[in-house]
């Protein structure tokens, strides 16, 4: 179903609903004590399993990106990228491209890692939530850049295939504090799933590379 609320919402904006803003000044927000924020958050998750509670604990990269609201300095970015790059595991067989048809499933699947998912749910990459991929697919999000024609535009260059593998395995190995998940390092996707989705981007037969 088409998102009628959001379209309608934009329409309300287009149609110019005037509303007055009486803003609250920045000085109304005192600096927060990080320990209090941590306690507040732990208080929300007292009834979940220890495994789930652990997911609310920040690693060093999450902590840095949170504190800087993703605007890290050059030196901080270098440190993050070096650390994240170190966690990337290249395919043991040296083969980067899997099956683009399975890759489509990975890109199209938004399930997994939600607290409502049954145990054992295989997670997808949900790339379509954020990226345009096949130019034929109309239901795509815009949080990330368009990847339509990705392999074709790169002449299927093996070096760029390797770069893209690393990007998907750990987006922050390339761009510190990227909004894209670190799919391999965070164990959302397996190496095989990453190879499949990479084939979806780089196989000549893939719909991504068709006009």
């Amino acid at each position: 179903m088409v998102s009628f609320s959001s379209k309608l919402f934009r329409t309300l904006l287009v149609c110019g609903f005037a509303v007055t803003v009486s803003s609250v000044d920045a000085q109304d927000r005192p600096p927060v004590d990080p320990a209090k924020v941590d306690a507040l958050i732990q208080g929300m998750f007292t009834r979940v399993s220890p495994e789930w509670r652990a997911r609310a604990v920040l690693d060093d990269t999450q902590r840095a990106c949170t504190e800087r609201r993703n605007q890290v300095s050059g030196a901080e970015a270098d440190a993050i990228q070096a650390r994240e790059r170190a966690s990337v595991v290249l395919p043991p067989d040296g083969n980067f491209l899997g099956d683009w048809r399975k890759g489509f499933q990975v890109a199209n699947n938004g399930r997994g890692l939600q607290f409502s998912d049954p145990a054992g749910t295989v997670a997808g990459g949900n790339c379509y939530a954020c990226h345009q991929m096949s130019p034929k697919e109309v239901s795509y999000g815009t949080l990330g850049p368009s990847l339509a024609g990705y392999g074709r535009e790169r002449n299927y260059d093996p070096e760029l295939i390797r770069d893209a593998y690393i990007k998907i395995f750990n987006a922050q190995a390339a761009v510190a504090c990227s909004n894209m998940p670190r799919f391999g390092s965070s164990k959302v996707l397996t190496i095989d799933q990453i190879k499949d989705v990479l084939a979806y981007l780089f196989d000549r037969q893939s719909p991504v590379n068709q006009p």
């Binding site: 507040l40 958050i41 997911r55 920040l58 999450q62 990106c65 949170t66 890692l113 998940p181």
Partner: peptide
Amino acid sequence: MGEALFYRRAGAMD
């Protein structure tokens, strides 16, 4: 604290 929470990155997908 609400503002801090809004910008807090965590979970398997950051």
